[in-house]
Design a protein around this nucleic acid. Structure first.
Length: 480
RNA sequence: UCCUGCUUAGCUCAGUUGGUUAGAGCAUCUGACUGUUAAUCAGAGGGUCGCUGGUUCAAGUCCAGCAGCAGGAGCCA
């Protein structure tokens, strides 16, 4: 009979009037042999349980240790203390699970570092920071579905295992049941994938986009939201080997429609979190401010986390073309004083992180949508513009995070697409099904990919992507 | 993968020009106190100084290799 419990979040919303309630949760602290701060994950706020002196056996009190799990019944009364409006005056305390204080790895008074908490990721949800981060993450994920559902998009589950490595979005993880020792070989000595489970070489997906395009040419508007895998040896605060990506794809849609949707979408999910996770965001804002106190003045954020999110909601994203961005960079004092590590050589160059950061953080100081990149530095499926030099690509750059969205209008003209694939050595025969959509009822269409964890980073202010996913997979790390 | 830095108690960190028995705060344990808010006070226990090798009379300290972690870069979302 656990369903009689009230969640702490609901409980704290009540007016104390001697109501009898039962709560269950984990001990955050036990002060003065009398006051238990109990948390159940519904909110970072704890319910203070008062175990009146002499009312409970010494051997029960001794077992009330950090992170022990309790079932507590009692009545709620106005608190005599200052830190909270109500107390739960306990009539019964049941220890559901002991927690050996000598061995439990997180003692909150030690102010454990984020790095340390990654080593005990199975318990880090029991801290305020990760409680807030993962409740916000949930809201963002939920609002993604709500946003698209309300617009009539169809949610597609694109395959996790794929046979095409055609997009070239990065190194892939191989999926196989062949034995490591003595795999079957062909006559020329290479591995014979005909004998593998799928009868061909298969990998974990690096993007659901190509399959998404197939669905968009029937449903009109679709989106995917699923795990994505990149076997790159990237060791940064914004890369994971396993991450979640949202990829809408819209038929009858051009680059401008695409950018409009992306901006509306980002603002929508931020607004949703602001409306539904205010307390958690305020906590995270304070956490970030405290963390930045250690930094020199010029490295601190100009705005608080909340102010930054409000600013994003209330201002249009800056839109400019790649060509305009190069001009701004070239004319910038930063460049003239040769302060870029990679000099701005001119049109055609790929933008380095430092260039993107300059545009977003120094020049415009808000999210930027960059469009119409040189075709040489972009993927084969992007629609060629009439100038013959650029493609209808779009990247959205966010302050502090960098590229958060990458998208484009897709090349819907079969001849142009085939020509580009040939130029870029993309095997057209493997992608016959993709090309078929251009043969039968092709339509102008567009879409983008949004890295979910980077979005969570942006909203929570967490600097390291490993701290916004429950169990991060990075090179040399997959413990949990 | 490249560059830089770090690795000393359960956690966060000091540790001088190489020198005898390696320190602190917090946590933990024991006791006291009891309307606390990261409770407070007193005491106690707790270390193969990341690993391997080298230099030296002597290495936590110097050198080399390896590993892990962090930050930056590249690749990207």
């Amino acid at each position: 009979m656990f369903n009689k419990r009230i969640k702490v979040k609901e409980l704290l919303a009540l007016e104390p009037n001697n109501q009898e309630v039962t709560v269950m949760g984990w001990v955050r602290s036990f002060r003065n042999n009398q006051f238990i701060a109990l948390n159940d994950g519904s909110t970072n706020n704890n319910i203070q349980i008062v175990a009146e002196l002499g009312r409970f056996d010494e051997d029960i009190l001794k077992r009330i240790t950090t992170s022990a799990s309790l079932k507590v019944s009692g009545v709620i009364v106005s608190s005599l203390g200052k830190g909270q409006k109500m107390d739960l005056k306990a009539t019964s305390i049941e220890i559901l699970g002991d927690s050996d204080a000598e061995k439990y790895p997180i003692q909150l008074r030690n102010r454990p570092t984020l790095e340390y908490l990654r080593e005990v990721a199975h318990f880090r949800f029991r801290t305020n920071t990760f409680g807030a981060v993962f409740r916000v993450r949930h809201s963002l994920a939920f609002s993604v579905h709500k946003f698209f559902n309300d617009k009539g998009f169809v949610y597609m589950h694109t395959p996790i295992i794929t046979a095409s490595d055609a997009e070239g979005a990065g190194e892939m993880f191989r999926v196989t049941t062949l034995p490591f020792e003595n795999p079957p070989k062909t006559e020329d000595g290479s591995i014979n994938f005909k004998e593998d489970f799928f009868g061909r070489n298969t990998n974990l997906t690096v993007s659901g986009q190509l399959e998404g395009e197939l669905a968009a040419t029937a449903f009109g508007d679709i989106y995917t939201f699923g795990p994505t895998f990149r076997a790159e040896n990237s060791n940064t605060a914004r890369h994971l080997a396993e991450f979640w990506m949202i990829e809408p794809e819209m038929a009858f849609c051009d680059l401008e429609d695409n950018a409009n949707l992306a901006e509306e979408f980002i603002k929508y999910i931020i607004k949703y979190a602001m409306d539904n996770n205010r307390e958690d965001l305020e906590f995270l804002a304070q956490r970030l401010a405290d963390e930045e106190k250690q930094l020199p003045q010029d490295k601190r954020s100009e705005m608080s986390l909340i102010e930054k999110l409000e600013f994003v909601l209330n201002n249009n994203f800056e839109r400019l073309t790649y060509t305009e961005a190069i001009d701004i960079l070239k004319e910038s004092n930063h460049n003239k004083k040769k302060k870029f590590q990679y000099p701005v050589t001119g049109w055609g160059m790929d933008l380095q992180s430092e260039h993107e950061r300059y545009l977003v953080e120094k020049h415009f100081k808000k999210p930027v949508i960059l469009t119409n990149y040189p075709k040489e530095i972009k993927a084969f499926y992007m629609r060629q513009n009439d100038d013959g030099k650029t493609v209808a690509a779009m990247d959205i750059l966010a302050p502090g995070i960098g590229e958060i969205v990458g998208g484009s209008q897709r090349e819907e003209r079969l001849d142009k697409l085939e020509q580009r694939m040939k130029e870029m050595n993309v095997p057209a025969d493997q992608l016959w099904w993709y090309l078929d959509t251009r043969r039968f009822g092709t339509v102008p269409h567009a879409g983008f990919g949004l890295g979910f964890e980077r979005m969570v980073q942006f909203v929570t202010g967490m600097n390291n992507i490993r701290d916004v996913i429950a169990f991060p997979r990075t090179p040399k790390s997959a413990e949990f």
